[in-house]
Simulated assay, not measured.
Amino acid sequence: MGPYRLKDFGGRFLTGEPVHTEGKIWPGIGAYVEWFIPEQSRPVSVLFVHGGGGQGSEFLRTPDGRPGWAHSFLSAGYPVFILDRPGHGRCAWNERILGPALPLPDYGFLYPRFVEPARHDLWAEAAKHDRWPKDPQAGDRFMASQGPMATTLAASQHHVEAIADQLFELTGPTIIVSHSAGGPCGWALAAKGGDKVAGILAIEPLGYPGMVHPLGTFENGLCAAPYAGTADPFERPVAIVSAEASWMRDANARAAAFIRDRGNIFEYIRLEEHGLGGNGHMLMSEINSAAIADLLVGWIEQNLCGQASLPNNEAVQG
């Protein structure tokens, strides 16, 4: 990761039409986007889409204070856009607009799956997990970042589809880097964005065709609901990235088989095959996160036909 200089940075709320209900007017479905534009920028940006009850800050800094993935992509010359999905991060959850939310998760639910898989041994690969930061407060900081999430996968999908047009007006041509439950949102965004989406890196994405999940069944390929957009999400270069010690291994393999059968540019990246073993689900937070980011940048350089690596002094404008 080398030094870089910024031409611009900032953020904006994406806002839907106000909603009239209960005799009052409320903001419609909204999201927040933060951007960082390097001085010598490439002609395609990177859009980070967080998962579950998380938020975009996961890509800015690790729980133990190291530079996050955003810095690696900025160092490589990519304009970076970081999304707080509707009701997450800087966007308050309003049940009148977004519908009900799940109860906030506690330590007992998230620690065995994200922070201490080897200690709790809930799945076969969990014993291999050894990449969580040693900082004793890293787990507490992770927990502090976790907020509400929709009660159905279909609702989460509809929420991001509602702000997609405004989002792509900001990002311009972009590469979606999604994570976990942000994976289905990423496919749905690509269906809305069409040619504006140059590629997709799905990091430990949730779901495979027919998967029955507590929040809904995957009845539309890798999504729970029909797309609001008309483009095929898989007609551009796509990669799925899986960690060695994650519970997502089987689901990711099934999703990879689904995409591969469509005959497009695709790679299923198993990190341990690239010398990056012992990782759990939060790849952007673990101690080898910078090396993983370098691998992702390298995949983009190799698979986007040189388009992403051309210098361009006119950055994407916020």
Rank of each mutant, 00 (worst) to 15 (best):
A198W: 10
E22Q: 14
G277E: 09
F59P: 01
R85T: 05
E95T: 10
A181H: 02
I265T: 00
V212Q: 15
V297R: 00
A224K: 04
E116W: 09
G23T: 06
E273N: 11
D232Y: 07
D84H: 12
G199Q: 10
C91F: 09
V316D: 13
I265F: 02
P67Y: 13
G87P: 11
L271S: 05
A31G: 15
K24P: 11
T230K: 15
H71Y: 10
R254I: 02
H88F: 08
A245T: 01
S57N: 10
H281C: 04
G280Q: 10
A243T: 07
E273K: 09
G182F: 11
G210M: 04
R5G: 04
A202P: 13
E22N: 15
A31I: 03
V46Y: 03
V19H: 00
G147N: 14
V197I: 07
P112V: 03
G2T: 12
L201D: 08
A126I: 02
I259D: 01
D261L: 04
M282L: 13
L83C: 04
P233Y: 02
G277M: 08
G68I: 05
A251C: 08
R5C: 07
L215N: 01
P103N: 00
A127T: 09
L60Q: 12
I97A: 07
Y78V: 07
T217Y: 03
D130E: 14
L74S: 11
P63H: 11
L296I: 02
G221M: 06
M143P: 09
L104I: 12
G10Q: 11
T15P: 03
A225Q: 05
V115F: 08
G298R: 03
E22G: 13
R12G: 03
G108L: 01
F168S: 02
I269P: 04
A231W: 11
P79K: 09
H274A: 10
L110K: 00
I240S: 06
T152D: 04
L206N: 14
G11L: 06
A101P: 00
P18E: 04
H158V: 07
M143N: 12
D84M: 02
K128I: 02
D140S: 14
A243N: 06
G183L: 07
W187A: 10
D261R: 05
H158Y: 13
G194E: 13
A257K: 09
G89Y: 05
R141G: 15
